[in-house]
Each structure stands twice: as structure tokens, then as C-alpha cells.
Amino acid sequence: MAEHSTAEAERPTAVQARPRPGPAKYLLRLVVLVYLVLLVAWPVALVGRNAFANGLTDLRGILDDPDVVHALRLTITVAVTAVVINTVFGVGISLLLVRYEFPGKRLLNALLDIPLSVSPIVVGLALVLVYGGRGGWFGPTLENVGFQVIFATPGIVLATVFVALPLVIREVVPVLQEVGDEQEQAARSLGANAIQTFRRITLPTIKWGVVYGVVLSLARSLGEFGAVKVVSGNVLGQTRTATLVVEEKYLNFDKGGAYATALLLTLVAVAAIIVVSVIRPKEQR
């Protein structure tokens, strides 16, 4: 997104050097296309088709079921909360990682990848160990002051924040690295304090990184299953989220209901990604 003054001169030669697409290139495109259709597009489309297998009955069925509606609401509440938390901390940690030198920086960097590499169900178990109301390491203390974490909404938010933690950071860090800190220094020398510099210069520069990170986090948060299943307790009408509804309905042979709920989850995530990719090119040159 940033044009490098030095790279500008090299751009025309790079365009000239690109060879015309030969048969090998077309074959490669075909392979990629078939692969993506078989693995992603076709299965997702089938979910949609199955959701409408009985017309609109299944969709209407789940929207009329107060427990499912509650589950959808809970999912959205949890996802939005988790995204807000992850965005604020994500931007903060990104700035810390890129702009400052401190001991333990590499360790922090490695730690941030754990949520992506550890299975969500392990995350769930780990959280129960710390915040569990009975045997937890920290949980009983919290419960004594009237704050229940595990088997309640805070636990679900916590688990969701954990699994989606690195997504904003991994989008924002490369952008911060690429733009460098000269613009910020220029703003400081023109009289802007730290907050003004962040609001007027840093934030607009990393805007698209943040937006992409938010969309990815949102999609991830809506769809989280494993960690949430462990910490929520899966209580109908209380702590059962949309993904848990899908599983429950599927196991109880209510396939129509399962597909309809799954479709709703998919649509929200896909819609977010489409909206971003539609508005993004307009903003860029």
C-alpha cells in the first residue's frame, strides 16, 4: 500500500519482465481452481443447499425457537466483545512490538503464536484450570466476590479472545514495519503529542490492517467451537452458543436445523469479508 520512492523507478522493468502466460500457467490455474472448488466452495455451497432443502421451513424453524435465537444473540455478543478487546490490545501490542525495544521481545512474539498453534480444546481446558469455580487456581477467589467465569459468559468471551488473539496483531505488525516511524517523527516535530500522533497519523496509516484483522477476528470468534464447548458448560438457553447449537441439532438428527444455523454463521462471516474487499480497492490508489 505504501509506495517506496526507490521502488518507483524499478516498477516498469518488473512489468516488462513478466512473460506471457503459457500452457503451463493455464494448467496451474486450473489445478488451483479445482482444488479450491472441491475443498472450499462446493462443500460450503452444499451447506446452503441443505439449509433450503425444505424451502424456508428450517430457517423459519430456528428463528422461531427462542433457545436458538438466544444462542445466536449470545454468539454475537461474545464475538463483538472479543473483537473489541482483541482490537484494542492487538493495536497496542503491535505498536509495542514494532516501535520499542525491550528484553523478552522475542519471547513475547513467540507467545503470541501459541493461540494459533494450540488446539482450542486445550485452550478450554487450560482456562478451566485457572478460572474454574471449584478446583481452579484463580476461579474460587473470583467466585467468592461474585464473579463467575467458567460456565458463564465471561468464560466464553475469554476463550474466544484467546483463540482470536494474534489475528489483529499479525495483520497490523507488517503494516507498521513497512511504513516506518518517519511520519510519526515528523508529526512530533510539528508539535503533535503522542495521542495526537496516534490518532492523526498512525491510525489512518494502519487502518486497513486493523480492518482486515477485525474481520478475521470476527469470523474466527463467530465460529469458535472447541474452547467454548469446554468453558461454557453448554447450558440450553444460557451458555449455548450458535456453534454448539449446530452440533446439538446435528447429533439429534435435526439436520435441517443444523444446516440452517450453520448457514447463518457462514453468511455473517462471508458477508464481512466481502464488504471489506469491496470497499478496500476504492480507498487504495
Binding site: A2, A186, S189, T205
Partner: peptide
């Protein structure tokens, strides 16, 4: 920001998301 110096960088450090006018106006807006 409290020294009242103007600084010009080798690689311009232009505020890329602001027009030329807004770039020049930055210090005054602050």
C-alpha cells in the same frame, strides 16, 4: 513537539493519507 523546530527528512515523511494542503496545515491544525 515543544522545541519548535521544523524537520525535513531525506525520504520526505509525507503524510500519505492527507492531501498536500492538509500536510502543510498539519502543524497549524495541531
Amino acid at each position: 513537539q515543544r522545541r519548535n523546530v521544523g524537520f525535513v527528512f531525506q525520504h520526505y515523511a509525507a503524510f500519505k493519507h492527507l492531501s498536500v494542503r492538509r500536510n502543510v496545515a498539519f502543524g497549524l491544525e495541531i
